[in-house]
């Protein structure tokens, strides 16, 4: 870093950088700190207590939160099934299109971006009748909601996998493997998937994050997941709702930090 007089280009000065990041960071930290402070409040009278956190590990109190734990279970199942949909339906299609149908790349991208233009609140209007049929075929267990979530995560999962797919020359790799006598299953399993594991992992983690945060579709289809249960519980016990919201937030932050770790593994990074 040179002095201000000869500084060229877009980079900000150290003062400007510190001021901006500090101010925005502080403003953004306040609501989170307020949530943490809230979980230690004894009640409207003032004073602080550890009771709300202690109640979480108290087996007697746990029965009170059974509904919440069921909903967390539902959300975890939904996350697993949604990731399965991404891996079994989206991933093979993307590989196939990359290898065999270069002309379909743009249409596939378009389809995968559509869920941003058709927001969940619009989709849910049409999903209600569709789920009338789904329930008749698969029953009304919690996991069926994953069909809708597979669509919700499509833009995020697509972007993660495509970034990896464009960075690896899959055509040359698969032709090389084919010319050495590998069959398609071997090409996929031993050559392509290991090369795409970073994109696949990122897509799975972001899907988990999106599913754990989903509220719109679940609440309007009258399903119980983590977020709808949090809203329910907040009406009777706001402290526990805020505690679980904080825990979920922390969990998702860790997931996304993992993604950025996976994403930024570049050559030359090992030096540092």
């Amino acid at each position: 870093m040179s002095t201000d007089a000869v500084r060229i280009g877009a980079e900000p000065g150290k003062v400007a950088r510190t001021v901006i990041l500090g101010a925005v960071g502080l403003v953004f930290a306040v609501p989170i700190l307020a949530m943490i402070e809230f979980t230690f409040r004894a009640g409207l009278g003032g004073g602080y207590t550890l009771d709300h956190w202690a109640a979480l590990v108290d087996p007697e109190q746990n029965t009170k939160y059974r509904q919440l734990f069921t909903a967390i279970g539902n959300s975890l199942v939904l996350a697993v099934v949604t990731v399965a949909i991404v891996l079994v339906i989206l991933l093979p299609t993307m590989i196939l299109v990359q290898l065999q149908f270069p002309r379909l790349r743009r249409p596939l991208e378009f389809i995968c971006i559509v869920p941003i233009t058709v927001p969940a609140i619009v989709l849910v209007v049409g999903l209600a009748p569709v789920y009338g049929v789904v329930v008749r075929i698969f029953g009304s267990s919690a996991w069926t909601l994953a069909f809708a979530y597979g669509i919700t995560v499509l833009p995020y999962a697509y972007r993660s996998i495509q970034a990896n797919l464009s960075a690896v020359d899959v055509i040359t790799l698969s032709e090389a493997a084919r010319s050495l006598g590998a069959n398609w299953l071997n090409v996929l399993w031993l050559v392509l998937l290991p090369n795409l594991r970073r994109g696949i992992l990122a897509a799975s983690l972001i899907s988990v994050a999106v599913v754990l945060g989903e509220y719109t579709i679940a609440s309007l289809l009258n399903r119980a997941n983590l977020q709808t249960a949090l809203v329910q519980v907040s009406k009777s016990d706001p402290y526990v709702a805020v505690i679980f919201a904080l825990l979920a937030l922390g969990l998702v932050l860790v997931l996304l930090l993992l993604i950025s770790r996976i994403g930024s593994t570049r050559p030359g990074r090992k030096r540092t």
Binding site: I32, G213, Q227, A245, V252, L253, L256, I259
Partner: peptide, 22 residues
Amino acid sequence: DSASSVLAQFGGVMLAFAFIAT
């Protein structure tokens, strides 16, 4: 980057709680 992704995609209900607490 990660905190931004969390808040941009995960916000939802949690944000309502955060601002009621704030």
